[in-house]
Nucleic acid binder design. Structure first.
Lengths: 218, 218, 218, 218
DNA sequence: GATGAATGAGCCTTCATTCAT
DNA sequence: GATGAATGAAGGCTCATTCAT
């Protein structure tokens, strides 16, 4: 997507700050996905973006700031995606839960590069405050919203059970299948991944979710 | 544990290869947990093991080999743990599933250090063949065993549903709550983590699992 | 002083070349004084001058040229200062020597910034031809003038001795107390510094200089 | 002096920590003298020592620490030199002052390299606390000792005057002629430099110092 | 076996300089 | 004139690896 810019005949072309930053962030995601966090270097990022390495430090002040900006980009993108999905979803809690699950497997979000980058950031989250600083609030917001829908649906006709745990299972199952897609030798398809999360939803909400997703007519 | 060795009457006693290797592996887990994968250095590992700088390369041929050995240690330990749990579990599929879940939260396995190390390895799994080489078989075996129990239990009186997906939900939910324990700012307790996995089991197998775990009398 | 320029009704008024150069030179003195020679960068100079990054290279061709111009400015300023002092001093050699000493401690010349910059240039003088190229002639002229006065005064009634060495002691004593003001943890005052040089003069010329400076009535 | 070590056929030869540190410090003095402070790099230091650049960071933790150690070496060496000179000097204050002056021009101390290094450190002293931290105490001790001798001598038969200022003139004159030796295009000889300081001593203590130094028979 | 000095590749970062706008 | 994006050389530092002792 950014390559269009780079195919211009003048390499020394100047772009706006925002464009260059985005270009470098996308390159960072790509390098993290391919090389892993530990072997992501500014040089590789710059090379992949077709830029000089000095530019990364010009637009971001340091490697850490670039990584934080990349994670922030991913987090904001993820949040915008599920919020957009909710905006067009039906009002019924089951519709909204279905929309959230579906959103997690949108092709634009559920890319091999982005999944790999997410996993890499998770792997480093333990030892760096960065992850919490950047994603903590968004993650909590997502969990809270999902909990609300689960609570409504459990009240409607669920088996009882704790909305917090139900929402947590749904959320971490999504993360878990993402991890599978990254770590398994022969991973299953994205459709199968979504079907797995929907199977969990169907177990908790059998009156609203069937094996193929949201049941109509409720 | 290392101090014991060092305070032994013969201060510079030559430890056996196996002992030294284990000592270094434990130190590696500790350093990965604290510093993350990207900032795990041989020097830090050696220092934490109370050994000299060059010794890590003496006992393992390279840093990569040390990391692989560490992962292998974790994987073998994990496998031995759930197999031991199965050995003393009852014959009913629900008992065996309960034993597998319980095993994942054994204090000896579900340590902060070990969880952090697992997450770090997952984060690098994408870009290094190491993870698959070392853990692939064990992971598949676990999934296969769990699938078998789920298939039996679904046949007994479950709601139908795909045993593969059910087993997968249970497995990735465990991984997911482990990730939560590592990445959340204020993580919940290990008991709550286990309860979350049991809530998933109860959703799939309501006749055999209640909110507090395995239902007696079946 | 620069702020005046910037707050002028026409904010982006084009300053003349000379004004911009002077603005950059003053900023350079300030940065050298604060950061030392080794950590004086064009970026810092430009920032302190309130100008854009690339402007220093526009007005001066290179960093070296800027530094040379800064040193030249200091040297010319110093020379103009003692020559102005001589212009209003009495005709007696003792008066002229007293005027030279006094000139070295004029508040306008003997500033913390300027002293620090001089010391920094001296420290680099050894390894760069710049210092000699810029200051050599002025320094020799000063030494020659001072030598002449000393020769006259020694002939008048001194203890004999070599005028060259006497003049040299007076000159390097000034430099030395300047260095003290820069390097001592709790430096003495500028008045004490001047009194120290006058003490040297009094030692060589006891009939013309007392502990408080030039003796009247000769 | 260290070159002897380097001419050994085995370059990978191991030396004790102290020897290597000294070797690197001597190389640092040499590079500072030749290139100036601003262009002294670890690479150049290592090259001059015939070692790899990584070794400098191994023995000293950083460039700053290496520079501080170098300054400390110079300062200790200087102090040891004048203290050794006092140890063999006569008891008369004039003898002791003469010994201090003479010590400052000992061939082993008054080397071109060492003088240049001193000047470079002075030039940076203003902007780094290092100089004060390392040399402050030694400098004060020297000044104090010299002041004591001057006080005694002034009491004996000097012209009156302030011992503090007299001692200061003698000390800074030495520093000043050192600076001259570094900064003048055609510097005078070391003998002329010493004679200049002795001329100052003769001015303050005409009964004890003549144009050629300490007068016998007092 | 064990130690730690030594090496050198590679990384992040700074910065003088260039140049399109 | 003026700005600031862009480049690339160079420096400090880390660290895996080797190896003499």
């Amino acid at each position: 997507m950014v390559a269009v810019v780079e195919t211009s005949p003048t390499p020394r072309r100047k772009l706006s700050r925002a464009e260059r930053r985005l270009q470098l962030i996308e390159a960072t995601i790509s390098v993290i996905a391919e090389n892993g966090f530990a072997r992501t270097t500014l040089g590789e990022v710059a090379k992949r973006a077709g830029l000089s390495h000095g530019l990364a430090n010009f637009h971001f002040e340091s490697k850490d700031k670039l990584l934080a900006a990349t994670l922030e980009h991913l987090s904001d993108e993820y949040r915008a995606n599920w919020q957009a999905a909710l905006a067009v979803a039906g009002p019924h809690p089951a519709d909204r839960i279905a929309a959230l699950i579906e959103a997690d497997f949108t092709p634009a979000i559920c890319t091999a590069d982005r999944l790999a980058a997410w996993c890499a950031f998770w792997g480093e989250a333990q030892s760096r405050p960065m992850y919490q600083d950047v994603c903590g609030q968004n993650d909590e917001e997502y969990q809270g919203v999902l909990e609300g829908f689960c609570r409504d649906l459990l009240a409607d006709g669920g088996y009882g059970g704790d909305a917090v745990r139900v929402a947590r299972v749904l959320r971490v199952t999504t993360e878990g299948v993402w991890l599978d897609l990254m770590t398994l030798q022969s991973p299953y398809s994205r459709d199968e991944a979504r079907a797995t999360v929907l199977a969990a939803a169907a177990a908790f909400f059998p009156r609203h979710f069937g094996p193929d997703g949201r049941l109509a007519g409720t």
